[in-house]
Amino acid sequence: MDILVCILLFSGLFFLTAGSIGILRFPDFYSRLHPAGKLDTLGTLLALMGLALFSLHHFSLGALLTSLKIMLIIIFVFVASPTATHAIVDAGVRAGLAPWTKGEKRR
């Protein structure tokens, strides 16, 4: 059980790391949204799933409710994160930012 929790938590941390480094490395605003929208979502999902599993450790009604609440957070993040990404992209398009293409200087 502990091993499964650790695997889920560390894979979540790995994806969160990749998301942070991707936000630093990618060349422009639109491509920075790829790690921010996808890697952060999956990292949060995996890490929270591991923690929900851990809070079931000593089984009781309170622990079950806590773990169900963490599941609620997971569902919320799963729905809300693409929508937030889409809102930021939409703001960029309305503001008229041109996407970076190959060969340009990074911004």
Binding site: F15, A18, I21, H34
Partner: peptide, 13 residues
């Protein structure tokens, strides 16, 4: 979703 994330993580690193 998993495939996508491994692809983007590969690109990042």
């Amino acid at each position: 979703l998993f495939k996508a994330n491994f692809h983007v993580a590969y690109l990042v690193f």
